[in-house]
């Protein structure tokens, strides 16, 4: 039998990625995601490496920017590409929560 994720597992990752799925898609991804996850599981077979990590192949350290103002957009440009806006603001359906992060 073909290996599959559970429906709940698919819905969980779909929620993390903020993608709504149809029933049909859920079924499809149960198989497809499982294949990929089986693939990445192979990382646990790799042996012999040390603990140092490589985040990216940075060839230089960060060069800090001087604290000097540069060009900015005007509010009309800011809302220019926004699907919903009102006045100078970008608009979304009301958010009832406290925000996270900062």
């Amino acid at each position: 039998m073909e290996e599959k994720l559970t429906k709940e597992e698919v819905l969980h990752v779909a929620d993390l990625a903020r993608i709504s799925l149809t029933e049909e898609e859920i079924e499809k991804y149960r198989v497809e995601l499982k294949k990929l996850l089986n693939d990445v599981e192979k990382i646990n077979d790799v042996k012999g490496y040390d603990d140092d990590i490589l985040i990216a192949c940075w060839e230089e350290n960060t060069t800090l920017r001087k604290d000097e103002p540069g060009e900015m957009l005007n509010p009309k440009e800011v809302i220019g590409n926004a699907p919903r806006h009102s006045g100078n603001y970008i608009e979304v359906p009301v958010v009832i929560s406290d925000g996270e992060g900062a």
Binding site: V78, S86, G87, N88, Y89, I90, E91, V92, P93, V94, V95, I96, G99, G101, A102
Partner: peptide
């Protein structure tokens, strides 16, 4: 980094970046 400011107006939330 700080986030943008949002103001709630009825059924909409307005974003100021």
């Amino acid at each position: 980094e700080d986030t943008c400011k949002s103001a709630h107006r009825g059924t909409k939330t307005l974003l100021d970046f």
